[in-house]
Structures are given as C-alpha cells and as structure tokens.
C-alpha cells in the first residue's frame, strides 16, 4: 500500500535493510544500514523482522506526507521529528494519520537515523536484499537516494496500532553521545605489514573524521602510520570496519558500500558491535582505537546480539504476552505464551 510521498528528500535518504550477502564475490558491495543496531531496534519496536527495509536518514531528515495511517518509529541520531508541526519523541512508536506531514529535522547529535514503518518498506528484492547500492545504482528505491515526489509503499499492517503505539526503547538502549568515539579493533589481517611503532601510533593516537566520509568509508586524519615496506598487497577481500592504510599513511575505515576487494594493507578491523558508533560519527569527530583479542571480540558480539533478543522480549512483554527468546548455538528460538490466564 502507498505509505509516504516525499515532499523534501533531506540530505541523503535511502532504503536499507541489513545488507546484500552472497554477492561480494561478484564485486557487489554488501551495502545495508550503516548503523545496523538502530535499524534492528527500530524494526523490533514496530514489530517487523529485524532485517526489514527502513529509511536511512542522513544529517538532515526528509519531509514526508502520509498516504495511509501508519505506525512509525525513528531510532538513531537526534533528528527531532515533527508531526504536523508538533514534536514527537525519538525511539518511540507513534501513529501518523493519512494526510499528516512528518518532518524530520537536522541531526543535533549523531549523523544517521532510521525510520521504520510497521509492515516494512516494500521495494523489490534485488539479489536477495532491499538495500540501495549507491555505487552500483541498483536496489532500494530505483537504485538511488529518494527525491521529491517519490512514493514509497509499505507492507500491510499485521497488528492493531494501539498494540504498537507508545512502545519505546528503555534507557539501556539509548545511544551514548561520547565526546571521543572509542572503537575496539582486532589487529590484522595485515598488521605484520606495519612497523611496531606504526601499530603503536595507531592504537595510541587520536584520529579525526575527515570530510570525505560517506557510506563507502571514512577517511581519517592523525599521526601517520608507518608501513614496513610500502602499503601495497596483492588485492584481497575487505570486511566491514577494515582499517586500510594507503601510501599517505592516513587510515581509511571501510563501511557498508565499500568496494569488495582492495590492494592496501589493513592494520585492523573494527569489531561489528562498534560499527554503529562509527556510523554516527561526523566529520571533525575524534576517534580512538583500542585493541581487543579475538576472544574478547566474540564475547562483545554475543552480548551485542543478546541485546536485540532482550529488547524483543521487553517490548513483547509490555503487550501482556510472555515471550521467551533463546539463543542456542547461534540459532534463535522464540516461544510465545498467550492466553487469558496471563
């Protein structure tokens, strides 16, 4: 069904889900939400699958005309929304009526927010994903950022709105806007291509996000990182959060729309639970990298994933149902208990 008409697109508004997997071997970027945690939390609040397609808003939000009654939530950067001119809270589900205008203002803190609608945004699946691939100009909404006049459709609502309205993130899930963005990294895959001093410089210095910071990656500026024998390697694949150091010895962190392969040595990889923090960093923001072991990284990842399970339990229990979600060897099991006796 028709959900929104775009009155003003904002700075860069794209449709994103959790990304396109299985096609990097063809040179196709993974894409997906830069701040995956905010996307997943937004989807949980409006009772979507965590990987449903939502709008990624950047720096300056869009102005949208509702073409139906919709249950909506915005999670992420502090981009205050106005519903027909009246403020509505972030991180809390609200209902917008057909004919009302939702205006999302500029980001006061953070850079990206996710607007999810109950039912999910309905754009065609391309190679298994609804994410927009900006460098390849395909996927999402016609392979591009939204423009004035575009009409977005959403899937049909499965729940009554009163069941969703007012659901919100508890304080444990609110973003923390620290002055210094602290990122944990696992060294490698090519930390041996750097001098000991180079690795120490990387781990002990402050780096600032430069203006060349987009969905492909962030260029950083700070003390130069010395290679042992030049920056070039035989090209290999690039995981999300990889910190590449080219010939100018300044690090580049590669993100959602990164190219799949590259020929510069990678000193470290930011752990996935910390990528959402980086996605919220803006040009000029200071970053600091600290080393963790692979075991510590796995523990952090497990805790990160369990956070989403707990959030789903929290919001479901408020609806008077008992929901138990278990993680057994990586598989998720959900048991719902519903009935008059509860």
């Amino acid at each position: 069904m028709e959900a929104f008409r775009i009155l003003q697109p904002g700075f860069l508004t794209t449709v994103q889900d959790r990304g396109r997997f299985g096609y990097q071997r063809y040179g196709i970027p993974a894409s997906g939400a830069m701040d995956e945690a905010s996307l997943r939390m937004a989807n949980i609040l409006v009772d979507n699958p965590e990987g449903a397609a939502a709008l990624e808003l950047t720096a300056q939000g869009p102005e949208l005309l509702a073409l139906a009654d919709l249950a909506v939530v915005i999670v992420g950067a502090e981009m205050d929304p106005l519903q027909d001119g009246s403020p509505v809270p972030l991180g809390e589900v609200f209902v917008i009526r057909r004919g009302e205008v939702l205006k999302v203002q500029g980001a006061k803190r953070g850079l990206r927010a996710y607007l999810a609608v109950h039912g999910g945004f309905d754009v065609p699946l391309v190679l298994g994903s609804r994410s927009t691939c900006l460098p390849g100009r395909f996927g999402g909404f016609q392979g591009r950022a939204l423009q004035e006049g575009d009409i977005l459709t959403s899937g049909p609502p499965m729940r009554r709105f009163h069941e969703l309205e007012g659901r919100r993130l508890s304080s444990a899930y609110h973003p923390r806007w620290d002055q210094l963005v602290k990122l944990r990294v696992v060294l490698g895959p090519q930390d041996d291509r750097f001098t000991q001093e180079g690795v120490e410089t990387f781990l002990s210095s402050e780096y600032k996000v430069m203006t060349e910071a987009d969905r492909m990656g962030y260029r950083l500026e700070g003390p130069p990182i010395a290679h042992r024998a030049g920056p070039d390697i035989v090209s290999d694949a690039i995981p999300p959060g990889a910190v590449q150091v080219p010939g100018n010895r300044q690090p580049v962190v590669l993100l959602a729309d990164r190219q799949t392969t590259g020929g510069y040595a990678k000193i470290a990889v930011v752990i996935r639970p910390d990528l959402p923090k980086l996605a919220q960093a803006k040009p000029g923001d200071p970053l600091h990298f600290s080393k963790v072991s692979l075991g510590e990284a796995y523990e952090a990842f497990r805790a990160y994933e369990e956070g989403f399970l707990r959030l789903r339990q929290e919001v479901e229990q408020k609806r008077g149902r008992k929901v138990y979600v278990f993680l057994v060897e990586g598989e998720r099991f959900q048991v719902e208990v519903e009935g008059k006796g509860l």
Binding site: F21, Y23, V234, D236, A237, T261, G330
Partner: peptide, 23 residues
C-alpha cells in the same frame, strides 16, 4: 557448514565470512 555466510575468492586468497555464534 552452518556458520558459513559467504566466500570471496581473490587472486591468491579466499575470504570466508562466518557467523561467530555458529562457528
């Protein structure tokens, strides 16, 4: 295997993306 997400072959190496909770 269950935790295998995707593989990316390059000239002389192979990247294996895996799910650490299942691997």
């Amino acid at each position: 295997f269950d935790g295998l997400v995707e593989v990316v072959p390059t000239s002389c190496s192979l990247m294996i993306y895996y799910d650490p909770l299942k691997t």
